[in-house]
Amino acid sequence: MADWNDQRTGVGYGTGIDSASVPSTVRDTGLRKHMLSIYNYMTSGVLLSGIIALVFAQGGENSMAAQLFTSGGILAWIVILSPLAIVFAMSLGANRFSAGALQAMFWGFATLMGISLSTIFLVYTSESIALTFFATAAAFAGLSLFGYTTKKDLSGFGTFLIMGVVGLLVAMLLNIWLQSSGLAMAISAIGVLIFAGLTAYDTQRLKAQYMHVRGTEWAGKAVILGALSLYLDFINMFQFLLAFLGGRE
């Protein structure tokens, strides 16, 4: 989701290697390895968040999640806001951080997200969470495969989808005041569609970026930042789908 290196502006990792000078077999093998590394990091991050969420939710009303978030103290707000701060730091400071530093920040982000996500076990049934997770995983796989294989240029949808995310955030803030169940359902449905589109768009964007980072110092950074983008697409799609379909306790 985070467009940390927009090729149209020329800002980011540099020029890389001209794809025309690289044999197609080498390019294809390198691309598959690059994308597999992104998916491995992204999947590991999601699994880490899920395991931590389960651990913190153990015990129901007496769980660590309940004790942390029902108190509404400063620690709860730190946990809630820290992942957002890390995303901005990674996206805006990618030029300054090493690949190792970005990797450490990614795992820290996934850990804090796991703690934040533990609250869903206090609201929704375990069965609906599991069903929604596997439905999201299947949808994500299909959408990402579409983004990887399609010949259609999806770059034109990028700005539209990012604007949709901004509009979604405004609607969510507005509904905190309105407390409209109808608007909440509409937000959830639109959120699923927006992040479904971003999954395909980001996959194609990351694939297109490969030849620009191949053989440069940005190669390792691109993997971590790409995993972060796809992680955000997956988790947001999961949360909106859960709010739309999840069964409450």
Rank of each mutant, 00 (worst) to 15 (best):
A219T: 10
G247P: 00
S126D: 15
R205P: 04
G182H: 06
L198F: 13
H34N: 10
F97T: 00
E249H: 14
H212N: 15
T125M: 03
G164S: 08
G12H: 07
I52A: 11
M113V: 11
F97Y: 06
A110E: 03
A243W: 12
F160G: 01
Q204I: 06
K207W: 08
L145E: 14
R214E: 08
T159G: 09
S118W: 02
M42V: 00
F238L: 11
Y39N: 06
L178N: 03
S126P: 03
L143D: 13
G246E: 07
L154A: 02
S126N: 13
A184G: 03
F121L: 12
L228N: 02
A227V: 01
R8H: 15
G50V: 04
S128M: 00
M35N: 07
G16R: 07
S188N: 13
G100M: 08
N175M: 09
V11W: 08
L84K: 09
G226W: 05
F238K: 05
D18H: 09
Q103G: 05
W107F: 15
I190M: 06
W177I: 15
G142V: 12
K221L: 07
I115A: 10
A130N: 12
L84H: 07
A219E: 15
L75N: 01
D28I: 07
T149M: 15
M163Q: 00
M35C: 11
A135P: 00
M1Y: 10
S229Q: 14
G182E: 11
S144T: 14
A227C: 05
L48G: 01
